[in-house]
Nucleic acid binder design. Structure first.
Lengths: 335, 335
DNA sequence: GACGTCTCTGTTAACGCTAACAAGATTTGG
DNA sequence: CCAAATCTTGTTAGCGTTAACAGAGACGTC
């Protein structure tokens, strides 16, 4: 069984001070004599003392832990968000506890949040890109610092989000600018806000250009569904430009087009979304839209810390604009 | 500021019992009258009471949290491991705290472990695929339950690992079986055990077949480095089969071969490693080796829980065999 | 030289929970 | 029907930390 490490009193005894003085040194209190501070530090080092976070959390009412609720942390977007969040949190002295959920339904989310709450996390970041998540967050205790990432813009919850609409608009516009009459769209699932936003942006760009949007091809983020949509698109001679809701969908589309002998970008141009690291090595290199996950993470954490410190909730929100990354999968239409 | 939720005593008062009885109900103690149990449960529900993990951790000396140290949780392998671990841990009632580190050097790892320790995690899982990580783990307090994943097999630390050697051997053998004279290899970084194991397996398979291994092409896991290696391979007419250390390297190789007009699998066969979800949609669909991340996660957690419960360390180890997934990127050589 | 004002340190009391013991209520055995 | 065993509940004492207050010197001011 684990031999418990030294406690504050042990350090205090060795340094010849009271445990409270040790606490002061640890928390950077100003009123400690330099000499005492050094003695305490020496004792800490000698004993290999490590403050007990549980005790601190108990007495202060909150731990230095931030809970993150996410769905599928295997997907590139969420994984990047999580990593960026963790990095940023670490810089602020916070640990990150993951509570991933299989389904983003009301019940699962609530359960994950509950788990975090019983560990008395200082705040919660919900990477909640789907409709149902919003409801779960409404019935939350009011006093928990909370930030949602890519959540429902219509709910009064602090929100940081990638500007999906702008990104999709840029992607679509990029294709129109290349000379394409219209742009087809392979979307993500309808219950993801990311997906809905990208559909909106696509539609907006087309309407602004006076073009009637062609029928939507619904996908589910996976290369498999992109492949299926691609098989249909490949057989429609009028299709010259496709915007897919993420890079993996694009990969599936590229493969289908390739199989049908439709060359990219010669016959059909393709634009993705996410800029996964491999996108530059697709055949051909994929033009795509890059969301700035670091910026999103920084913004969310900052927002969360503000809430933790001030205690005020408020319905702050912040939007991060993504950038178009032009590569070789886009060209003017033939003819 | 957060209004603190109800405590055990509040529940006790409402239910007309002592706080200790509430504690007993919560912990499933046997000696509580059914009627009392129900009354307590009702009070818990009515107040929305949530046990305070920090207090529990303080008194029991350990929390229901497992710390995970990993490097780049954006890479598919680590991300999958983390997700699987989190899932498994949740089933056992444990939360997972991530401490990712930018570099897997001694200092970073130690720092991450320290952070976990001061939160009094119940145990630590280190996804430590590199050399330098091993050293950091040697100087750890002896009494912390610890499991390394894909770590150094030569160190006396509990270890769960994907059988890289067997996987690489299978991949290489698969190519030899298809009739190829020899198999080239694009490796990962040399300080990753995964990478070294795969090199060993590749070499073993070739030697067993009486073939002198061709020069190694060193990569760094990225599609970019795969592309660079692929450009060289494409210009060597004698190359007919390539095994890459992961799927993203393979993607880069595929792209380079495509650019040079070398058809896969007609001219050159390619096998990857990892089976990323998109691998089936590469051009052509990639034959690869699939490690069972769930099995690894389950094994590690089981090992960790065993240590937590018994308190014994021991140098247990377990190896999970990966499976070859045959797709269309492999064919017999022309000639 | 006495008095207020800093600066530094120590003492005490929580925080919310579990463990250990104690004690009343209930059952069992002869 | 009484003593002993068992079940059920309550009481008390920490776990290691921070917060609040208190006290002891050092210093400057009149």
């Amino acid at each position: 069984m684990a031999v418990h490490g030294p406690a504050m009193t042990d350090v205090a005894r060795l340094a010849g001070v009271s445990h409270q003085t040790v606490s002061r040194v640890l928390n950077g209190h100003p009123n400690v004599r330099e000499q005492t501070r050094l003695r305490v530090r020496a004792a800490i080092a000698e004993l290999g003392y490590r403050p007990n976070g549980a005790a601190r959390a108990l007495v202060t009412g909150r731990s230095q832990v931030i809970g993150v609720v996410a769905q599928n942390t295997t997907l590139y977007g969420p994984a990047s968000m999580l990593a960026a969040l963790e990095q940023t949190a670490a810089e602020e002295g916070f640990a990150v506890s993951v509570g991933s959920v299989r389904n983003l339904d009301h019940r699962s989310i609530s359960a994950a949040v509950e788990r975090h709450l019983s560990h008395r996390v200082a705040g919660i970041v919900v990477i909640a890109p789907v409709e149902s998540a919003g409801e779960a967050l409404e019935h939350l205790p009011q006093d928990v610092p909370l930030v949602t990432v890519d959540g429902d813009p219509s709910r009064p919850v602090p929100l940081v989000t990638v500007d999906q609409v702008a990104g999709a608009r840029a992607a679509t516009q990029h294709l129109l600018d290349a000379g394409h009459r219209t742009v087809w769209h392979v979307s993500g699932p309808f219950d993801w806000f990311d997906s809905v936003g990208r559909i909106d942006g696509w539609r907006e760009a087309l309407l602004a250009a006076g073009v009637d949007p062609p029928p939507l091809m619904p996908g589910d983020w996976s290369a498999a569904s992109g492949y299926r949509c691609g098989q249909m698109l490949a057989r429609m001679p009028e299709v010259t430009a496709v915007f897919t809701s993420n890079d993996h969908l694009a990969l599936g589309v590229l493969r289908a087009l390739h199989e049908f002998g439709r060359r990219v970008p010669h016959d059909i141009s393709v634009v993705g979304f996410d800029d996964v690291p491999e996108a530059a090595y697709f055949i051909p290199p994929l033009t795509t839209v890059r969301p700035d996950f670091d910026a999103v993470a920084r913004a969310s954490l900052q927002m969360l810390l503000a809430q933790i410190e001030t205690g005020t909730g408020g319905a702050m929100r912040q939007t991060i604009a993504p950038a178009l990354v032009a590569r070789e999968s886009v060209a003017p239409p033939r003819s």
